[in-house]
Nucleic acid binder design. Structure first.
Lengths: 193, 193
DNA sequence: GGTGGCATCTTGTCAATGACAAGATTAGGA
DNA sequence: TCCTAATCTTGTCATTGACAAGATGCCACC
């Protein structure tokens, strides 16, 4: 709201968030400097404090936005499990700044109510695909397996840990890898212990 | 080597590494402070510099050790794919300080030769289980899928992102989740595009 | 139209940190 | 014994996060 009619700077809050996304893309979330954000936005070094309190406050807002955007992407991908998984990986690669903040609890206020709500919304979107697919009798474990393989691939990709031969296209590689996950597991009993 | 015969402090290098592992367990790798390590070891604030150059140098050593320990754990787990996967998760949870450093390229010197070699050794140990299992005709993709699901589960567990109902025992939960991965994928063609 | 209140932003400051330089101390071999 | 190099210390500087106090301009209200 309230366009970018800059006077008292206009919408400094949004400007700082955008600058933060850029900076995170460049140097990662931990090397992020509030004073650098202030410089990028052309304001004094203490301006960010007023809007976010401290660094954790800013990153909490980013994480919240990230979970909401992820939920959107998953919903848009539809109910096909493989497509949703590819969408998950694609989100991580295309919005790595968001993704890297979302899963680092030490970076934000984990008990923030808005963050918790957004995370929950993303969780619902995540599980809906698995539930629709039917899968095995244990939907919890099924969705957890799907989440794990997509999250693992995305994380390894972002960490640059994957070998060269995986290729340059994350969507293509993700599709081939995620296809290895079958909803109906082989009939190995869980063997509780 | 050279026991802990403390005089010129004895083995400060090892003491700093141990202190670093403790500190990382407590506050995470990014909040790690070299000066704090020096205090824990009872030396001056600049002592760590001589042994590791800078913070990235210290974390590079830790990452190297971590990959070697992971390789050991995977070899010890044997050739069974599921057992190896559980061992991977178990390593991440039991040695989270190592694990958290290993997959954060921004924290260490990625081109360090010893680190690269150790990472390669761990990669070999990782793929051997999948190759032995036979799996499909595409061993690369199979091992990548196995790595992804184990790494994803471990990462989500460490991030505290998993819901309560997963339980308290990472090995048990990991076994149930990893069992969802079958070496022979359903006959969906990769469809290159 | 004027005025007061408040959100917004600035200036100033402090402790902590990483990194570097230069010097002191000690081990261990020549 | 002496000397050289490894090891550790002291001192310093720029950067940063956080906080306090003050300045500025917008807006509602009269």
């Amino acid at each position: 709201m309230t366009e970018t009619r800059a006077y008292h700077h206009g919408d400094l809050r949004r400007a700082l968030l955008t600058a933060a996304l850029e900076a995170i893309e460049e140097v990662g979330p931990t090397a992020l400097s509030l004073r650098d954000l202030a410089r990028r936005a052309g304001v004094s070094h203490a301006a960010p404090t007023h809007h976010f309190g401290d660094k954790a406050g800013l990153l909490t807002v980013l994480a919240t936005e990230g979970f909401d955007r992820l939920a959107q992407a998953l919903v848009a991908a539809g109910d096909d499990l493989l497509t949703a998984g590819v969408a998950y990986v694609d989100f991580a690669v295309a919005h790595r700044a968001y993704f890297e903040v979302m899963f680092r609890p030490e970076l934000h206020r984990v008990d923030d109510p808005e963050l918790t709500a957004a995370r929950e919304r993303a969780g619902v979107a995540l599980r809906s695909g698995v539930a629709a697919r039917g899968a095995s009798d244990d939907t919890d474990r099924d969705s957890l397996a799907a989440w794990s393989i997509a999250h693992g691939f995305a994380t390894l990709w972002l960490a640059g840990a994957l070998p060269e031969r995986v290729g340059e296209d994350p969507r293509k590689a993700a599709r081939e890898v995620l296809a290895r996950l079958t909803p109906n597991p082989s009939p190995t009993p869980p063997r509780p212990r």
